[in-house]
């Protein structure tokens, strides 16, 4: 380890700010480490809470581990060979990495929206109905129709698509596709929604629509969003976490992070000195 690294480690050290929230958090990470193939550590000792009905924005330069942490929250990392997660991650006071927690059930509770819109090559209706059908969330077809309508409405897509529910979801525009993916996630009635740079593949107008949607959704869901855009983080999030080289450097209420950051690295990043 050369001097630079030591300096960096000292600099990164312990998370500053306010990782814990008042009351009972919806989700909580405690001392999480993530390794790929044993020798490559992607996340170092991260602890952070997700409060109910709030949006937590995760920001930081590329490769800082924010997406990795996000994927740990609904155990999507299980699908990657050689990925090991240590530490504890709680959902409503239950450790999601213990053996009696089922990843399928967990993912029904913690939904995820991806960077690139990924509708299935099926009709719009079938895309939204996919989750409820999987989990048997309805007893008959009219109930399913209701779930589809409700989810599409919540995702702000109902008006545009109600006449073309049988058309393929892949035929929609990029922003519509992403809202379809959000509707698809909502249809399972999750408690937490994870979003991995949901607007990075979209144009500014579609981005604005999605941002509005996220703002509306937070009344019913807990949301964690990874974003590259600091403006977006500032606009939509209640709390903001800054990651650097796999460490959580600083986490606090968004307005504090952006107006009065405690850590020098955070300040450098939000003022645009690197990133």
């Amino acid at each position: 380890m050369n001097n630079n690294d030591i300096e960096l480690n000292q600099q990164l050290g312990k998370t500053v700010g306010n990782p814990l929230v008042d009351g009972i958090p919806r989700m909580s990470c405690q001392s999480v480490d993530v390794f790929y193939n044993q020798d490559l550590q992607a996340i170092f000792n991260v602890s952070v809470d997700l409060a109910k009905n709030q949006i937590l924005a995760m920001i930081g330069p590329s490769g800082c581990g924010k997406s990795t942490l996000l994927r740990c929250l609904n155990r999507m990392n299980d699908t990657i060979d050689g990925c090991i997660v240590t530490g504890k991650i709680y959902l409503d006071n239950e450790d999601i990495y213990t053996s009696n927690i089922d990843p399928v059930l967990l993912r029904a509770k913690v939904g995820m929206v991806f960077q690139k819109p990924n509708p299935f090559p099926k009709s719009i209706y079938d895309n939204v109905a996919y989750g409820p059908r999987l989990h048997g969330l309805m007893t008959n077809n009219s109930e399913l129709d209701d779930i589809v309508e409700e989810s599409l409405t919540k995702a702000g897509l109902w008006k545009e698509t109600k006449d073309r529910l049988n058309k393929p979801g892949t035929g929609l525009s990029g922003g519509q596709q992403q809202r379809l993916c959000i509707a698809r996630t909502i249809a399972v009635k999750p408690e937490v929604i994870l979003m991995d740079e949901p607007t990075s593949a979209l144009d500014p107008i579609a981005t604005a629509t999605i941002e509005e949607l996220m703002y509306e959704l937070k009344s019913s869901y807990t949301i964690a969003v990874v974003t590259h855009s600091m403006q977006q983080a500032a606009r939509i999030s209640d709390r903001c976490a800054y990651f650097h080289l796999g460490r959580l450097v600083e986490v606090n209420d968004t307005n504090i992070v952006f107006t009065n950051p405690e850590h020098g690295l955070t300040e450098n990043y939000i003022t645009g000195r690197f990133g």
Partner: peptide, 14 residues
């Protein structure tokens, strides 16, 4: 609630 519904179906699905 949903959790229970999903939980119930899990055995069959697995």
């Amino acid at each position: 609630n949903n959790t229970q519904i999903v939980q119930k179906s899990l055995k069959k699905r697995y």
